[in-house]
Amino acid sequence: MLIIPLAAMPSQKVSVLLAGQNCQINVYQKTTGLYLDLAINNAPIKSGMLCLDRILLIRHPYLGFIGDLAFFDMQGTSDPTYEGLGSRYRFTYIEASDL
């Protein structure tokens, strides 16, 4: 697993290389929860994913993403909110071999 650093901000974009994939990740808070969009080489893979504690976000290999992404609450089992990003809530990349 690899921790992807995020800041405690309500909206942010991160570019990161994961398993040779040039990923663009957009994380944003809405009144209904924390959401995530994923693109590889600026081509959308999945958008508007509700981020929940310890739940894989991609889940479908046919989408073409190698591995998966998930949030982990380090102080319990609450779903992530932007205020705890980078501290309480860890955003992780899980390699395909670990799934």
Rank of each mutant, 00 (worst) to 15 (best):
M1D: 12
M1H: 11
L2S: 12
I4R: 03
I4A: 04
P5T: 04
P5R: 01
L6Y: 02
L6T: 01
A8R: 04
A8S: 15
M9S: 13
M9T: 10
P10N: 01
K13E: 05
K13L: 00
V16L: 02
V16P: 06
L18T: 04
L18Y: 02
A19V: 03
A19G: 05
A19M: 08
G20P: 06
G20S: 07
N22P: 04
N22G: 05
Q24V: 02
Q24W: 05
I25M: 10
N26G: 09
N26S: 14
V27I: 11
V27Q: 02
Y28L: 04
Y28D: 00
T31P: 10
T31E: 15
T32W: 12
T32S: 15
G33F: 01
G33E: 05
L34Q: 02
L34S: 03
Y35M: 06
Y35F: 15
Y35E: 03
L36V: 06
L36M: 11
D37G: 07
L38H: 01
L38T: 00
A39D: 12
A39H: 11
N41I: 01
I45N: 00
K46C: 09
S47Y: 03
S47L: 14
G48E: 11
G48W: 10
M49W: 09
L52M: 15
R54I: 05
R54V: 03
I55C: 11
I55L: 13
L57A: 12
I58P: 06
R59A: 13
H60Y: 14
H60R: 14
P61G: 07
P61A: 10
Y62M: 06
L63G: 01
F65P: 02
F65C: 06
F65D: 01
I66Q: 09
G67S: 08
G67C: 08
G67T: 01
D68R: 09
A70H: 10
A70S: 12
A70G: 09
A70C: 13
A70D: 10
F71H: 03
F71N: 00
F72E: 07
D73I: 01
G76Y: 07
G76H: 08
G76N: 00
G76L: 02
T77F: 12
S78H: 13
T81A: 13
T81P: 00
T81C: 13
E83M: 07
E83Y: 10
L85E: 02
G86C: 03
Y89N: 01
R90I: 07
R90H: 15
Y93S: 00
I94L: 15
E95M: 11
E95D: 14
E95K: 13
A96K: 13
S97N: 11
D98Q: 15
L99E: 12
L99R: 15
